[in-house]
Simulated scan of single mutants.
Amino acid sequence: MGYIIFKDIYSCRKSILIYMVIAIGFIMTGFGGENSNFVGIVIMMMTYGTATRIQYDEEKHMGYSFLRTLPIRSYKIVASKFLTSFILAVFTVVYTFGLLVILPKGQINDEGIIVIVATFSVALILTGIFHLMVYKYGSSKALTYTRIFFFSFFFIPFIGSYITDLLKKITSKEAVMDMINKISGLFENLTISGNIVLLLIVGFLVYFLLMLRSIIIFNKKSAV
């Protein structure tokens, strides 16, 4: 399994270098200072982008057909893909923190840490969904579906606003505001470390469940 992980990381080494340079560019131009959202974008791009490259290469060169002939259990093949994405995600977070500390325009604050950790968890979940769809539908369809899923995040604020307005029409305004305040209060009562732990637990748990489901799908297809 270690060989597969090394092979995947080596095969997308150029993409990794490009994303590393992009991260430096974001921070040096000031995007990684006061506005940490742009640093989070780099984490998302590297984690998801390298996963799509790895799966595309496997399908293009019929890599899974070759891996099935090796004396390795099928679940290890799937687990290696998830572990590769996880390793790259962790590397990107560490690399990003390092740049924010070293570079002159880098800046780390509590909000920035939360953004980076939240993006790390979302990147893991999105990448896990992509891997799952690859084993179910193939890399081409998986890439299309996850792109739709990714861009749908931009519409979440509008959807949330619409649902809030709809609830105000159905129920009293006071009841809606009370519900929103209670939900936001759950997060406000948590410390910075509490928020980080919560985000990491959710990200790891969902990612692990997606890996288990991917293994089941891969085993079923291998048995056919």
Rank of each mutant, 00 (worst) to 15 (best):
T92P: 00
I183N: 01
F150I: 11
S172T: 15
S85V: 07
T164Y: 04
K105D: 05
F218P: 00
I102C: 06
S184I: 12
I9L: 03
G32F: 10
N195D: 03
D110C: 02
I108G: 05
M62L: 11
V90L: 11
G203N: 03
H61R: 14
F82N: 10
F38W: 14
T52H: 02
D178N: 08
T47I: 09
T119K: 05
G30R: 05
E174N: 03
R13E: 00
A23P: 03
D165L: 11
R147Y: 07
T96N: 12
F151N: 10
T69I: 09
V176I: 05
I125S: 12
L70E: 08
I217L: 05
P71C: 03
G98E: 02
G106V: 04
Y10L: 10
L99P: 09
L124I: 08
T69Q: 15
G33V: 02
D57Y: 15
M20L: 10
Y64F: 08
S36V: 04
F120K: 04
A51T: 14
M28Y: 08
I5P: 02
S184L: 10
V78P: 00
S193F: 15
A89G: 08
I72E: 00
K76G: 00
M45D: 00
I192R: 03
Q55L: 09
G32N: 04
I16K: 00
H61Q: 07
M28S: 14
S85E: 00
I170C: 02
S193C: 01
L83R: 11
I18M: 13
L143N: 15
Y10R: 13
D178L: 14
S172H: 09
M62C: 03
D178K: 10
H61W: 12
S152A: 15
I16H: 00
G30I: 11
D178C: 07
T171E: 12
T92Y: 02
I170V: 15
F66Q: 13
L190T: 01
S222N: 12
V122F: 03
V122S: 13
I156R: 01
K60S: 11
N109R: 09
I129K: 04
I108F: 12
L83W: 05
E58C: 01
S11I: 07
I77K: 09
S172G: 13
N189M: 06
G33I: 06
M211K: 10
L70M: 14
L166G: 02
S85Q: 01
I156C: 01
S15L: 08
K169M: 15
R68K: 05
I196S: 14
Q107H: 14
G33T: 04
I148E: 05
I116M: 13
Y95A: 13
F153D: 03
I116F: 04
I54C: 09
M133S: 10
Y162S: 07
Y64S: 12
V94G: 04
F153N: 07
H131L: 12
S172P: 03
L190Q: 06
I183S: 05
L166E: 07
Y207I: 06
T50W: 01
F155K: 00
E111L: 06
G33C: 08
A123I: 09
T191M: 11
